[in-house]
Each structure stands twice: as structure tokens, then as C-alpha cells.
Amino acid sequence: MKCTFVPSICSYCGTGCGVLFETIDGKIISTIPMKSHPVSQGKLCIKGWNLHEHINSPMRLKQPMVKTFGRFINTNWDEAIQITADRFKEIIKEHGPDSIGVLVSAKMSNEENYLAQKLARAVIGTNNVDHCARL
């Protein structure tokens, strides 16, 4: 039997509380607050305490889905990204880059948010970038 403790950051909001995942044989059993973490100092809110439940949830989507003729169809990542890129190209060609807006999230890290705005400005060509925490 293998039991490990994996330090991580809570993915629920932008606060960045330190959590520790307790795993037994590769399956996450529970979430423990990281006592020495400078941000959370061993405390968590109810969402952080239950991180392992959404990871283990049978309702969790494990692969991308594409809506085709009003129904969601399972697909792989390559195809999903290709379809998204094609649709974006079409929209930009037809209505211009400012017809697209990018809404980033507090659930991502600072670096991921930076990359998302870079994608919006450099690739799509729009300044329409906003953040869910500003809503």
C-alpha cells in the first residue's frame, strides 16, 4: 500500500490557500490544510476542505465535448482545439477580432491568466479581456 502527501494550491479561488492531498494507492482520499503555508496558515474554507470530492466525482468531465446539432459529443483534445480555432478564425474573418472577448478566471494561476490575455491580444487581436473576479 502506498500513501503519499501531495502539496498543492486550492483551485477554487484566487486566494491561493495551501492544501495537502492525502492519497492511498493513487486515489485522493482527503484534503488537509497545509499548516505551514504562508497564505492560509493551516486554515481552509468549506470549498477547500472538499477539493477531493470534485476530483473523485463521477459527474466530472474527463474529456472535451463539442456541441454538434444541439448535442454534446465526446471528442479528443486535438479535435476540440482545432474546432475552436476554426470557429474563432471564421468569426474574426466575418466580424473582426473585437467580436471576441476573453473572460479569465480567479481559479487559474496568475501565470495562466497572463497567458490568456497574451492569447487575446497577440493571437486574437482584441483588448476585450476581463476577469471573473471583477464581475
Binding site: 502539496p7 495537502l20 497545509m34 505551514s36
Partner: peptide, 11 residues
């Protein structure tokens, strides 16, 4: 571990 004293399972 990563500068934090964390529980560990020794085998």
C-alpha cells in the same frame, strides 16, 4: 518537502 514540514509515509 518543498521547504515545508509535511507528513510522510516511510516504507
Amino acid at each position: 518537502s518543498n521547504g515545508h514540514p509535511l507528513p510522510h509515509c516511510f516504507t
